[in-house]
Design a protein around this nucleic acid. Structure first.
Lengths: 338, 338
DNA sequence: CCTGGCACTCAATGGTCACGAGTGCCAGAT
DNA sequence: ATCTGGCACTCGTGACCATTGAGTGCCAGG
């Protein structure tokens, strides 16, 4: 068990190191934070903290820097979430109002997050499976060719071509469109498969082939699009990483390009609560020297997707968490209104 | 006028420098390329080339490196476009076949280009204004709310909400849909404004308000989307840039995030012909130490958008140009088929 | 349990020096 | 005229070394 003062020392170390990017020593600490004790005492505390694995020295006779475990303790017990300043709040509103469509909302959100946190921002598009259906449209493009269009309540649109086994009449198509919509509109995408299961049987024999083809493409779309799209931005902020550049930045850029990796990353975050993954807590090893702060956002109470930032483990956690939370909330509002 | 041999020397310098990333001296040159003359002669030639501004020395008593002007001469007169190897061609086919929708085509193209050239790839989405209309759809979502969906021959889909001044009946909507489509299907987007100009007049008075609202949104969409979307990838390749990292890479990353900058960049490229912009030929100063190789691609003979790569001025021009051209052609084919 | 003192460690800084790749120029060969 | 070999010169690079100072661990005393 660590004494109160030792925790205070750890907090001071984290704060100083985040600010200066340089290992912090006992003397400097006592000067910048009035801890009420002498450097020598701090040294003892530091030795204890190091013993426990919360801090480490890059080399003998240098100051200490926090370890991943140290940051973890800091985030969990020593730091709160810093609320944004009024100008920052205003910036969020100015920036996000005026978005015209979903693409635009996502694009603006990414830029905003990157600017606020000065880190790399990642925003996931609202997930299909968690959204509800606003409309399903079927367009006849050629005698045996139909375009299927899905529209979600979050404004997302997906379309697929369907090559039918036989020519489809306008009437049959209109019929299918009507029945399909009456069943699924307002329902969650996840429930669609069950809702349409018995649909082919209610059609005349001639059209059943077409109906089940359309339905299978519909279900396929849902499955395929479960692997979500996302947008990233602010990669230029990676240049502020460290001095030992290429080695640090390279794997991060590579990881960021692997959408699968990022999606898994966001997926690991809890839906409602803000999640912070520090350094080696990230499964992907390219991100072992970065931290990920992520949270779900949604139009209602429920999260339809996630967003967050990726930055060096040495980041301003309270500030970053504040920004991420504030942006997520406001994006949720925007989506609810649209 | 430069003698034949001096051009040969320049070519050798460019090739060596591109390979080794190090200033190349007279002795090393004569060793790697049998020019049939002694180092001393090469030195004289180099002095002449430097005099003319084709090469420069980073500091006295170091080898020479090509200047932007030198690369320009190299690209224009000394180098061809290197055709891809068979495995590379096969890779293109494997990679691009199997794309399901337009987003997927673009995403795969970006990855492919980035891998082939080991540089940053930029692919513009097929432009609306140069595409032709495949279908216009109007969906009634609420009594006075209509969703407008545009589908292009390149598979691109745009949608917009339209809030009508008065409730719209299904009949009126179907009527508008039919007339609209009969006028614009198969026509180029650029021609749409004229084609629909007199449409409101042919409707009954009650519906004219709705019709013109829908049309104005339609035209607005065309204008807004003239500023195109694009996708980039392969930014991790920037880490291979140079040793003096942060300074070089930073402005490039920043430029890459400015979609406007990139779009202008691609816009400057000629439609059909491959365009190479070297170093300071790029207007944006963040890209002053990079070269851009771009070319238009399209489903028919005509270009509907552009794609290209951004890399260090010290790049393998013949190879890069070969890859860019090959990919552009194949993407064109894919779009034509879909 | 805290404090001041002390000896020790070691990265960083800066100066000196030798090395060598590369240059420019010139006189002589082709 | 043009190319070549030779020669003196430049200057960045890397090795070596001494100095400096921030930071540490430990210990004896308050």
């Amino acid at each position: 068990m660590l004494s109160e003062r030792r925790l205070e020392v750890l907090r001071a170390i984290v704060q100083d190191y985040v600010g200066t990017e340089e290992p912090v020593g006992s003397k400097a600490l006592t000067e910048r934070h009035r801890l009420g004790v002498s450097p020598a005492t701090v040294r003892n505390d530091m030795a204890a903290l190091e013993e426990e694995g919360y801090i480490a020295q890059p080399h003998t006779s240098a100051g200490r820097i926090p370890t991943d475990k140290g940051y973890r303790l800091f985030v969990d017990r020593l730091a709160g979430v810093k609320p944004l300043s009024t100008p920052e709040r205003r910036a969020i509103h100015n920036f996000l109002d005026g978005a015209v469509d979903l693409d635009d909302v996502v694009a603006r959100t990414v830029r905003l997050l990157a600017q606020l946190t000065r880190q790399v921002a990642v925003v996931q598009y609202p997930s299909l499976t968690r959204s509800t259906v606003r409309h399903v449209e079927l367009l006849s493009l050629a005698p045996a060719r139909v375009m299927l269009v899905l529209i979600t309540d979050t404004g997302r649109v997906e379309q697929r071509m369907v090559d039918c086994p036989a020519p489809v009449g306008e009437n049959a198509l209109a019929d299918l469109r009507a029945r399909l919509n009456s069943r699924v509109v307002g329902r969650r995408f996840a429930d669609v498969p069950q809702l349409v299961q018995d649909l082919p049987e209610s059609f005349e024999k001639d059209d059943r082939g077409t109906v089940s083809t359309v339905l299978s493409i519909l279900l396929e779309t849902l499955v395929e699009e479960t692997e979500e799209r996302l947008m990233i931005g602010g990669t230029a902020n990676l240049t502020r990483f460290g001095h030992d550049f290429p080695l640090t930045i390279r794997p991060v850029l590579e990881a960021l390009e692997e959408q699968v990796v990022l999606l898994k990353l966001l997926g690991e975050a809890k839906d409602s609560e803000m999640t912070v993954r520090i350094g080696h807590e990230n499964a992907h090893e390219g991100l072992n020297s970065t931290s990920v702060v992520a949270v779900g956002y949604g139009s209602g109470g429920e999260a339809v997707a996630k967003l967050g930032v990726v930055g060096p483990t040495r980041m301003d956690y309270p500030g970053t968490m504040g920004a991420v939370r504030a942006v997520a909330r406001y994006v949720g509002q925007i989506l609810a209104e649209s």
